[in-house]
Design a protein around this nucleic acid. Structure first.
Lengths: 255, 255
DNA sequence: GCTAATCCTTTTGTCCAACAAATAAGAGAA
DNA sequence: TTCTCTTATTTGTTGGACAAAAGGATTAGC
């Protein structure tokens, strides 16, 4: 009597095999359940604090096994959109920011060189290439604030505080652009940027070389010297690349 | 005959109940497996491209059931540190930035005038201000591809298809920068950008004025004419601003 | 001998059923 | 009424089965 049925041929109605051939990225049952749950949240207009149906109810609703639903729930938990407790069930939360931080405290995986280069390249576009916009908007108060944050970095007691202050300096710089989209993206990227800042540095570096580089950038900004500003900032951003190591990793086995 | 043993009392050795009281966040079996795998990666010094042991091997090594190991693997996949394929197994990757950005594609941003201006400003920084980088990287193939996508937009049957093709054009433009961080940010902003593109337009506009603007941009890029390129692109991006309504909200600094 | 199609084996993907643990809710006693 | 104990429900974990994918070994055909 068919002890285990194991997911009736993809879909009881449609002959999926052809579809599966055409579409290489066949969504797994778990992915489908995740999409279903997201759709459920959307259509019911659920917000933080609201509860989701029980696992078994979701099994029945989406015609999936409990393990499949549980794996889907694991994804949602990992994304920080729900918390699950026994008997209580799944409750919608918003811990996405914490999760983003968790991602890069994941010391087990070293940030790849490609990621490193892309992030620094992105920052270079936002901070260096936008020189005209920054010069347009920067006022005396901004200069003062930048100097204060640079001193805070120099005087920070620990490595973590120093890199936090370092980020704060650059965040202030881009905030001069007065563009929420930019600051939001920077906020999301903060964990990676922090780790990049600490890469190959010791505490003392923040108080000496990094401090001096920041000072040069501020001076150029205050003097409205475009060339010097771009040179100083570009130099500052590229420095970490050397400490990262030789770029042999990316090579596609030159055979 | 004890068909299912189900995790012998937490730990065969230690009396955990006290611990459980002291420590409110009692780590689940899945969390422990995740920690074990992280430790395994660290102690073996595994990097991007290396493979993890098979699921059943991990079960045996950590004394956990396969479902538990699978849920742990789901977490690692959600974190973007491994990819798993049948028969191949789990391979270490680094898609954490992509996942971090993904986290924030959940919320449906409502587009205010300020948001609209910021998004367009952001695009202007990425597409216009980076002119030197784009000129450095753009090749004949890129020009051809841009022309193809522009024609696709002109010939699109519906409004939705046209705006999709419009986005595709701009995505191709920024992809010339060869920076995953930029393309990822564009990808998550896609829904908003699409809505901006359709704002105050009729289907015909994509085939006439928008098509011509794109053509001008491509011509300038091909001719390596920086001034013309920046002018054409900036003009193109600012056009939508007028159709959005009176800009009384965003007090433009009177220069 | 060499190529190509076929079979085989390994590994992940999904399903099912059971028991353990946690806990909210209700029943019962003071 | 209020506190405590029981109960029922829900998540957490386990074991086992089969399906599907994919690489490797085997064999047929030239």
């Amino acid at each position: 009597m068919a002890a285990v049925t194991a997911r009736p041929p993809r879909d009881a109605l449609a002959p999926l095999p052809f579809d599966a051939v055409i579409r290489p990225a066949a969504p797994s049952a778990v992915d489908e359940v995740v999409a279903h749950i997201r759709a459920l949240i959307a259509e019911r207009g659920l917000h933080v604090g609201d509860s989701l149906p029980t696992e078994r109810e979701l099994c029945q609703r989406f015609q999936a096994s409990r393990n499949t639903v549980r794996e889907a729930m694991r994804i949602l938990k990992a994304y920080g959109v729900v918390t699950v407790r026994p008997k209580i069930g799944a409750v919608i939360v918003d811990n996405r920011l914490e999760r983003a931080l968790d991602l890069f405290s994941f010391n087990t995986i070293e940030i790849s060189r490609k990621t490193f280069a892309d992030i620094q390249g992105f920052r270079s576009m936002i901070e260096v290439d936008t020189v005209e916009r920054i010069f347009d908007h920067a006022g005396p108060d901004d200069i003062t604030e930048l100097r204060a944050r640079n001193r805070a970095m120099r005087d920070a007691p620990t490595m973590a505080d120093a890199s936090e202050a370092d980020f704060s300096f650059h965040l202030k710089l881009v905030s001069i652009l007065n563009n929420d989209a930019v600051t939001e993206v920077y906020r999301i990227m903060k964990p990676v940027i922090i780790r990049i800042m600490e890469k190959g540095k010791v505490r003392q570096d923040f108080g000496t070389s990094t401090y001096q580089q920041h000072a040069d950038i501020i001076d150029a900004l205050e003097a409205r010297n475009r060339i010097k500003y771009q040179y100083a900032l570009q130099y500052h951003l590229e420095l970490g690349l050397n400490t990262f190591g030789s770029p042999q990793e990316d090579k596609r086995s030159p055979e």
